[in-house]
């Protein structure tokens, strides 16, 4: 629509991070938002909220990021965070096989319970713990297949091959990345890819369709701890920018 000199249109996108404890969700967000990394990041209690803009050629996306707690018992809180989310980052630790299983559970839950059409990215974090990154050669979404093959070198902490995760992602229609929050590998790429994947329609008028769709699914989650009562989604539009 508006192009050239006119200020790029800007819209808000709600994004939720899910995944097992200590896979690096908060670290990814911290890298994306502050381009920073903390070795001893406190576990997230409940959830944390941050925002960050993402500039695309044609528009600006303002991510409203909900970073959730990873421990299993916090799972029942998750619905109040992914409610109305247009996108989700499901993170696993590629040195921990259980974390991928958990990630799959989250994907399944999102597909069934979250807003229809939610854009989901599967992210294998801690790429720096594998050998192949020592070349500091950020893996594009496409180059992963080969990288996975030659990885049995000693000292490689990788437990989940790129191929395995990637084929799962393809099966489920997810975006897929391997990242390192520590080194910053692929982090902005993930968010940019999500921004690009959000359908234009759900952006126009901020959250028009997205919100109305979501409200249908919400009734179910309303009994969760969150604030209850009918909410006026439209009132949210104003704060997008």
């Amino acid at each position: 629509m508006a192009e050239a000199t006119a200020p790029k249109p800007s819209s808000s996108v709600k994004l939720v991070l899910l995944g097992e404890a200590a896979v690096g969700k908060s670290s990814l967000v911290l890298r994306f938002v502050n381009n920073d990394f903390q070795e001893n990041k406190e576990p997230t209690i409940g959830a944390a909220f941050l925002t960050q803009k993402c500039n695309l050629p044609t528009r600006t996306i303002k991510f409203e990021i909900w970073d959730t707690a990873g421990q299993e018992r916090f799972a029942s809180l998750a619905p109040m965070y992914y409610r109305n989310a247009q996108s989700a980052l499901v993170v696993y630790d590629l040195t921990k096989p259980t974390s991928l299983i958990k990630a799959k559970h989250w994907v399944a839950e999102l597909q069934r319970q979250a807003s229809p059409g939610i854009v989901i990215a599967l992210v294998g974090n801690k790429l720096d713990l594998t050998n192949e990154t020592s070349s500091s050669n950020p893996l594009g979404e496409d180059g992963d297949g080969e990288a996975a093959e030659g990885e049995d070198a000693d000292g490689d902490a990788r437990k989940i091959s790129t191929a395995e995760a990637k084929s799962y992602a393809e099966e489920e229609g997810l975006l897929f990345f391997e990242t390192s929050a520590k080194l910053g590998t692929n982090v902005t790429e993930v968010f940019t890819a999500i921004a690009n994947a959000i359908p234009e329609t759900s952006l126009k008028g901020a959250r028009g369709p997205g919100a109305s769709q979501a409200s249908a699914g919400r009734t179910e989650d309303q009994s969760r701890v969150n604030l209850t009562g009918p909410r006026d989604n439209a009132s949210k539009e104003g704060c997008g920018c």
């Binding site: 409940g46 604030l227 909410r231 006026d232 989604n233 009132s235």
Partner: peptide
């Protein structure tokens, strides 16, 4: 409620 803010967050 109007602003759809989740207090418990």
């Amino acid at each position: 409620v109007k602003s759809d803010v989740q207090l418990s967050v």
